[in-house]
Design a binder for these strands. Structure first.
Lengths: 215, 215
DNA sequence: GCTAGTTTTTGAACGTGTTCAATTACCGCG
DNA sequence: CGCGGTAATTGAACACGTTCAAAAACTAGC
């Protein structure tokens, strides 16, 4: 087996074992030593493949984001229906790994140092998540960035609620998804009114003055 | 010196030394060993007074929250002016300790385990911060919880922006404070219209169905 | 002043994330 | 097939947050 393939297989095995342990014991209670052992590697080898424990957690989320992109691409129906598919699907996809969400959300909102590779990676995944939402929105181009960012923040908030949702089938959070989308989606056409445009322009320029650009 | 006074003085000295070091080196680069040494104590003694490094960080924020309560009590003028005093004052008060903000914000949004003392402490501080904003708002009782929570989320977002603001006098973030309040405050009276009341009722009941109560 | 009880202090030790020099294994080329 | 170069692997060691048993210090009551 050529090296590239073997190393890729090893990396995948490591991640897979980590996910099983994170699911079983939680991220904090799972040690890198546990993970290396479960993958049949030494501790140092685990660090050869992933620079940190946090990188393992985040790698899962990057993969999950890819799944969301496919899900969004295949969703059909009204905007409300497509957003519903996306939001509910996101929660379902993450369900077995809810214990990792706290760590993930914290990473996503971490202001970090803008120059660090660490932060740039987070930003990249964040931007891709926002791009998926933006691609789902069929509204005017100038309105889309702000609306997509707002919906992404809603998604984050919902994930935070999901973490501690112990209702059967997490129906509380899923119900909140529906309620929130039922409120948010009818507001989107209001953004296309002159007043809506003015509001968006005002928010966007305030952010721009603070050097914050929504792409 | 009676014990209570001496131990209180020791605790204060420890916190003061920690804050100096956090300011100089950042929270992560500052070790508990550094802090203990700077306070003239052993490492174990430092842990006698504060249960964790994080607790030191958070203790500062609790004290800062108390200062905000006094500031809010003394603010006068229009609602916009009072909120401005509160928001700008918050940023100014935290300015020398911006390096600590990332850790603080993460703690404030951490979903944690609802049963843990750790989470309950965070929630308490969060609720006090929200209560200060609520006390500043002169609007109908049924509208106040939601508006206060929204403004508190705005404050959090502004703190995240503040962390990486390298403009002179952090004028970018302060400018954003003014822009944001200039947009938000005129919306508050709109909440008192029948349509506003209906919206607030709808949001509040959606949250209630998800077991989230805004107090 | 002595004693018992409590608080404060200490420093060795532990567990965990991480690092890194050395070794082993692998691959491609001549 | 042998060799050089590179990738993968190892395990000891380090730093840091945290813990805890033992010792020291202090206070109040007799």
């Amino acid at each position: 087996m050529p090296r590239v393939k073997k190393s890729e297989a090893t990396r995948k095995r490591l991640l897979a074992r980590a996910l099983v342990l994170f699911q079983k014991k939680g991220v904090e209670q799972t040690t890198m030593r546990d993970i290396a052992k479960a993958a049949g590697l030494s501790l140092g080898a685990a660090y050869y493949y992933f620079p940190s424990k946090d990188a393992l957690v985040f790698s899962f989320y990057e993969d999950n984001q890819r799944d969301m992109e496919e899900l969004a691409a295949s969703a059909t129906g009204t905007l409300r229906e497509r957003l519903g598919v996306l939001f509910h699907g996101k929660l379902e996809s993450i369900r077995p790994h809810r214990k990792m969400l706290a760590a993930i959300v914290q990473r996503l909102v971490d202001p970090g140092d803008p120059l660090s590779a660490f932060s740039q990676q987070s930003r990249q995944v964040r931007e891709r998540a926002i791009a998926v939402i933006a691609a789902t929105l069929d509204i005017a181009d100038d309105l889309r960035p702000l609306a997509a960012h707002a919906l992404w923040l809603l998604m984050l908030a919902l994930m935070l609620v999901y973490i501690n949702d112990d209702s059967p089938g997490e129906k509380r959070t899923h119900g909140l998804v529906d309620d929130a989308l039922d409120m948010a989606v009818p507001m989107l056409p209001l953004l296309a009114t002159p007043m809506g445009h003015a509001l968006v322009e005002r928010v966007t320029s305030a952010l721009a003055r603070a050097d914050i650009t929504l792409t």
